[in-house]
């Protein structure tokens, strides 16, 4: 008995050590490595509550181990324990102390809850309208009149107000390093105020089960210095450069217009794919595959195999040249 218990505790301790030593999570994705003020507030509260709870846990476990060791039945023993009814004093103690601890927890909680719900003044804020679609994210900047998908650029140090819209099912918009999530609820607009304090690429996730492709509904947040952000803005506002008439890009454009425009340019509001303007600047295909020609081909040939449940149809009927032309054209959209 005794040996087994020691073994078990040893196992647990070594497990914790392993966790702390071996894996600390990825800095672009981890709650424990916050890079924004909201995430920092939240982590503070996590640590504060974890601390309080650990104290409780240690007290319980101390009594627990003591009791189990001290009062276990020994061989040949046959004692009649005293049939205690209870102890009002003790019971009051373990009612009042937890209440006090919970009050100590409740005060910052309520404070932070209201702090996080405050919306920043519109003047110094970048507003971004986020729409969650089945398995991809759309980002609109109403202040600058630009639209992009899967990748959102934000300036470092500025408050960003995400206004979150839903079109189909529930999703949840989550950038762990920058702050907690909020649900994408069709028919209502939720807001989320975040900021990034370090120029870096962060990963975003959909956290609410939204269908077959839920696991792959990722996006990226590019936090840039103000100057870089402005540069990006300026580039985005430029219309896509036209292609020379006889080149293979021009052929690609024709194919694009015939096969892709319907969904990818917002003509039909019911069938909507990501906006492909400036496609060449994106670092991923479909939000998950690294951007290169090979992956574009994989994606076009069988999107379902890459992202189950996606609405993107198979484009497997193009011949090799047509495919290459299309890719060339897409890569020219800077």
């Amino acid at each position: 008995m005794e040996r087994l218990r020691v073994w078990r505790i040893g196992l647990l301790v070594s497990l914790v050590m392993l966790l702390l030593a071996g894996c600390s999570g990825d800095p672009s994705l981890s709650v424990l490595d916050p890079k924004g003020s909201a995430a920092k507030i939240q982590l503070n509260l996590i640590y504060w509550s974890l601390g309080l709870m650990t104290v409780v846990f240690v007290i319980v476990i101390t009594i627990y181990v003591y009791v189990l060791v001290r009062y276990r039945k020994r061989k040949g023993q046959n004692r009649m324990p005293e049939q205690v009814h209870g102890s009002t004093k003790l019971e009051i103690i373990w009612t009042v102390i937890p209440i006090a601890a919970l009050i100590a927890l409740a005060i910052p909680t309520v404070q932070y809850t209201f702090d996080l719900a405050k919306e920043p003044p519109a003047k110094d804020t970048v507003i971004i309208d986020v729409t969650g679609h089945q398995y991809w994210w759309e980002f609109k900047y109403p202040q600058y009149g630009i639209t992009t998908a899967q990748e959102v650029h934000i300036p470092v140090g500025k408050k960003i107000l995400f206004r979150i819209h839903g079109k189909d099912v529930l999703h949840a918009f989550w950038i762990p390093s920058l702050g907690g999530k909020v649900d994408v609820v069709p028919g209502r607009v939720n807001t989320l105020t975040l900021d990034a304090q370090e120029a870096k690429v962060y990963q975003g996730k959909c956290a609410e089960l939204c269908g077959a492709g839920h696991a792959l509904m990722d996006f990226k947040v590019f936090a840039q210095k103000q100057a870089d952000f402005d540069k990006w803005l300026a580039a985005m506002k430029q219309p896509v450069a036209s292609v020379s008439a006889s080149s293979s890009e021009a052929n690609g454009e024709k194919i694009f217009k015939q096969n892709c425009m319907g969904c990818h340019a917002g003509i039909n509001p019911n069938i909507q794919g990501p906006n492909l303007n400036k496609f060449a600047t994106r670092s991923t295909i479909a939000g998950i595959l690294p951007h290169n020609d090979e992956n574009i081909k994989i994606w076009l040939k069988n999107p379902q195999a890459v992202k189950p449940g996606t609405l993107m149809p198979k484009i497997d009927y193009l011949n090799k040249d047509e495919l290459n032309d299309l890719i060339k054209y897409l890569d020219s959209r800077k």
Binding site: M53, W174, G180
Partner: peptide, 27 residues
């Protein structure tokens, strides 16, 4: 049951805090 459930209870209290829950929720 006792230590296991106490751990579940601890994380339960942690989940009850909305700002922290924004991070835990659906993870």
């Amino acid at each position: 049951f006792i230590p296991t459930f106490v751990m579940g209870g601890m994380t339960g209290v942690m989940l009850a805090l909305p700002p922290a829950d924004f991070q835990y929720q659906d993870s």
